[in-house]
Each structure stands twice: as C-alpha cells, then as structure tokens.
C-alpha cells in the first residue's frame, strides 16, 4: 500500500483550517522547506475552496475526499468530489491584467504546483496536484 493519508470531510469552509494543518504537516514530513510547505498548503486550500464554491455551490454537507501521498520525489494531492464538474479548459485561469474579484485561485494553484490535472468523470471529479521536492544541496 502506498504510504499516505486520506481525509474525508463535508464541504463546509469551517474545515478548511483542519485541512491546511494536515497538508502543511504532511509536506513537512516529506521534507519540503518551510516556504514550500506554506505555498503547497495555499494551493490545496484554493483547490478545496473551488470545490466548495463551484462544484457544490456553497452547500456545506457534500462529501470531499483528499488523498495525500509521496510520489516521484514530490507531494501528490488527489481531491475527489461528486459535484458539478467543469470543462478542463475552464481551469486555465483568467488574465490577471483584468483586475476583478474571483478567478484568482486557479492561477495561484498553477503558479505554485508543478502539475495540475483535472478530470470530470462519471459521477465524480478528480483533481490531481503534484509538486516536486527541491533537491537538497550537498551538506544539507
């Protein structure tokens, strides 16, 4: 069995801080630097709020599963929901020159993570994020 953890939570923003805590500590466990831990945590937070807002339209009682694991020298996060899917091209983020509220989260995720794959499947949506761990310098 792959080493990793699974979180199951309702789509209630009150649980965001719980997930942030778990993700930050898991990244630290995989020996990511403090700054990377913080950025990865923000990326997962953004992905999770996207699910709450756009897949579940702010309903607070819908299921979300999050799998955290080490893969290929990096940190992989798989987020699964059963809400309304979006077309993958809608996740490209918008032009930031157009200053307006909303649409910033996807851009932040893409900036922070090395890979972002979204798949609307039969009855569920899967978002997979991956960030490579920076190589340690000699002597570290």
């Amino acid at each position: 069995m792959d080493s990793g953890i699974k979180l199951v939570l309702p789509s209630d923003p009150r649980y965001l801080s719980v997930v942030r805590g778990a993700v930050e500590r898991f990244a630290a466990l995989l020996e990511f630097g403090e700054e990377d831990c913080r950025w990865i945590t923000l990326a997962v937070h953004e992905a999770l709020t996207n699910v709450m807002r756009h897949a579940y339209h702010d309903r607070h009682d819908q299921p979300i599963e999050i799998f955290l694991r080490e893969r290929d020298g990096g940190f992989e996060v798989l987020m699964v929901d059963h809400g309304q899917g979006v077309r993958p091209e809608q996740l490209s983020g918008r032009a930031l020159e157009d200053v307006k509220p909303g649409g910033l989260g996807t851009h932040m995720i893409r900036e922070i993570m090395d890979e972002m794959d979204y798949a609307p499947l039969e009855g569920r949506n899967e978002l997979r994020l991956w960030k490579k761990r920076a190589d340690k310098k000699a002597g570290e």
């Binding site: 923000l42 200053v99 509220p101 989260g105």
Partner: peptide, 14 residues
C-alpha cells in the same frame, strides 16, 4: 489570506 480574501479586497477597492 486566500483568493477569496483577495477577491474581497479587490471588490472593496472597486
């Protein structure tokens, strides 16, 4: 702060 918070600041600014 997250993107929702930033969005709130942008909306307040506008």
């Amino acid at each position: 702060i997250d993107s929702a918070g930033l969005g709130t600041l942008v909306a307040a600014f506008h």
